[in-house]
């Protein structure tokens, strides 16, 4: 993503958000866009096809009509058509991200991704959601990820904030602390002759 694309995506996302807000369809449009993103992830050829700039708009629009014409809300469907006509379909993931951000801000929601070394139980996820909601004074929506590399603990990512209490990062910090001390000693200390004994 380039800054120029981000600018364009921001304008598209704002337009879609304002339209959806007027018609009280914020969440519906968001869930449909998320489903679309999942489809494009599963069938990347579909996205690639819509991104092709040398194909005529009619062909791409016909494909959109055939596949999504009946399943998507008309607002989103026409929005996709505009992206195709303007050769900006590659902006779709960024538009989704920005639309999601705008919608969440508007509905007083905060999205958090929680990474743990082992899968979390539902009760644990609920507890985390409650804690984060209380901390941010907004309704927290948690999505979980598993990464064994963090060894233990958890990493929570909310907006720009990164709350890291993983074992891996604690070990990293201990390593940094001990290395700094060792370096400090190397400057102030002369090893006694029995050092190598």
């Amino acid at each position: 993503m380039k800054t120029k694309q981000l600018h364009h995506a921001y304008y598209y996302a704002t337009a879609l958000y304002e339209l959806a807000k007027e018609q009280k369809l914020l969440d519906q449009i968001l869930s449909e866009m998320e489903e679309l993103a999942q489809i494009f992830e599963l069938v990347p050829q579909a996205r690639q096809f819509l991104e092709l700039t040398f194909l005529s708009d009619d062909v791409k629009q016909a494909m959109l009509e055939k596949v999504f014409g009946k399943s998507l809300h008309p607002i989103l469907f026409f929005f996709l058509k505009i992206l195709v006509v303007k050769d900006h379909f590659s902006l779709f993931p960024t538009v989704l991200h920005l639309y999601c951000k705008l919608t969440d801000e508007s509905l007083g929601r905060v999205r958090a991704s929680v990474t743990t070394a082992v899968p979390l139980k539902d009760a644990e996820i609920q507890e985390i959601e409650q804690m984060l909601s209380a901390y941010f004074h907004q309704q927290a929506v948690v999505s979980t990820f598993v990464d064994q590399k963090i060894l233990g603990g958890m990493i929570v990512h909310v907006k720009d904030l990164w709350l890291d209490s993983s074992i891996a990062s604690h070990l990293k910090r201990i390593h940094k602390k001990v290395s700094a001390k060792a370096q400090e000693l190397a400057h102030t200390v002369e090893l006694s002759p029995d050092y190598h004994e």
């Binding site: 209490s165 000693l185 006694s192």
Partner: peptide, 25 residues
């Protein structure tokens, strides 16, 4: 002048004094 054991003790002390805190960045 330090002896090897003293250096090891100093480094151990560093590890023991480590306070695990939640880092928010």
């Amino acid at each position: 002048q330090f002896k090897a054991q003293e250096i090891v003790a100093l480094l151990k002390q560093e590890i023991q004094s480590y306070q695990p805190t939640l880092v928010m960045e």
